[in-house]
């Protein structure tokens, strides 16, 4: 089932980048920053990774494709969501070429690989009674209305 993202969620992800968490099959977590992020399709997010960033998560990811991420910086509080899915490190192909070129142009990142995450789960992480509420069962219209009742702020894209 496709995980829908609202325009506001896309804006926060792309403006702030994300903290990416993977784990070994035995459950040892590793974290890196996805400094350049782009929502490439409904339910897919691509992150440009430099060589040293990819090197931290590649060993775990090669054995266990599950990825969890949250929005970096102010997004940790203003975009109170957790995104989960399966990740694949791309080192060639059209998605890699496009994202790597954009990451270079916009943020000066020399992308060695692109982490493409196909989302499978979406959770609210707002502290309180809604913490942990699963949102990926909502239709796009329901999700948009749910979010608009709570937040409308959209960040400016960072340099």
């Amino acid at each position: 089932m496709t995980v829908n993202l609202t325009d506001r969620m896309k804006a926060w992800i792309e403006a702030m980048g994300c903290h990416l968490c993977v784990a070994t099959p035995e459950g040892v977590p590793f974290v890196v920053l996805g400094r350049y992020a782009e929502v490439t399709g409904n339910g897919e997010v691509a992150f440009a990774l430099a060589q040293d960033e990819a090197k931290v998560i590649a060993p775990a990811l090669s054995k266990n494709p599950r990825v969890a991420f949250g929005v970096s910086r102010q997004g940790g509080i203003r975009a109170a969501y957790q995104f989960k899915g399966t990740g694949e490190l791309l080192r060639s192909g059209s998605v890699f070429d496009t994202i790597a070129a954009q990451a270079k142009e916009e943020k000066g990142i020399d992308a060695e690989s692109v982490l493409l995450v196909r989302l499978t789960e979406l959770y609210c992480t707002k502290p309180g009674y809604e913490a942990g509420q699963r949102l990926d069962g909502m239709s796009p219209e329901e999700l948009d209305a749910w979010e608009r009742q709570r937040w409308k702020d959209v960040p400016r894209k960072r340099d």
């Binding site: 784990a23 459950g27 599950r66 109170a80 957790q82």
Partner: peptide, 8 residues
Amino acid sequence: DGNPNIAA
């Protein structure tokens, strides 16, 4: 079994 989770 390796299902990661991240929370602020």
